[in-house]
Amino acid sequence: MTKKNIVTRDIKMADVIHMNYLLLPVINRFDIKLGFGDKTVEQVCSEYGINLSFFLDIINTYHDPKYFPLDKMREYPINLIVNYLLKSHEHYTQKMLPETEQMIDELVHSCRGDCDNLRLIEDFYKKYKTELENHLKSEEEKFFPYVKALIDKKEKEKNLEAIRRKYNFSYASHSIEHESVITKLLDLKNILIKYLPPDYDHGKCNNLLYWLFLFEDDLRDHERLEDVILLPALENIEAQYRQNK
């Protein structure tokens, strides 16, 4: 990996965004505001009290799909990771989902011919929105509490299966839900691009498509973050659990 392709502590924070503007929402999720002048990544992180190494790993995981800091990722306190993931959930429910709905609404209102087709798209999206919200909620109510219970050593029970049952968490349904929320978004894009008769305002449809591409990328990175950082850390904790039996 060349140095150019990776964000390091001595790069100016402004240059990080010039390098890859898709990192903007990721930086937002650390509650970092714009207007950082010529400060480096390290300076900005220290100003906001952010764990520098964690910030760099998160940013680079989004920036380069092959970035894979195995050694370090196991050392992060899991709360740090879970809190970050919760921030992303907030971003999806409060920003991505409502704004997508708004854009679809505008597209429907720009209808010029048979509006039934556009209403079908609207219905499809509403169902999708509910599904994604339920998935995020299930992570917040089952998966994260399970993870937290293990790190806080709250459980007297030593059998991991029993603890998973208690929190109603299963790896299988988790992985399938993850896959489904991304694939449906891909289907929606494809239907808009290939199959929907174009009786609408094209500018509005383009905006929606740009937005859906961003949304899908963000969801994929979010999923990767869980796979690359959270799950290995969890495997580690589960292994310790088994040893202490």
Partner: peptide
């Protein structure tokens, strides 16, 4: 062939193309 993977996506395609009534 269609580039659509999910059941709900396929359903939407089928309705859009009048293969099944809504």
């Amino acid at each position: 062939k269609l580039g659509i993977k999910t059941v709900s996506g396929l359903t939407l395609y089928a309705v859009l193309n009048d293969l099944i009534p809504k």
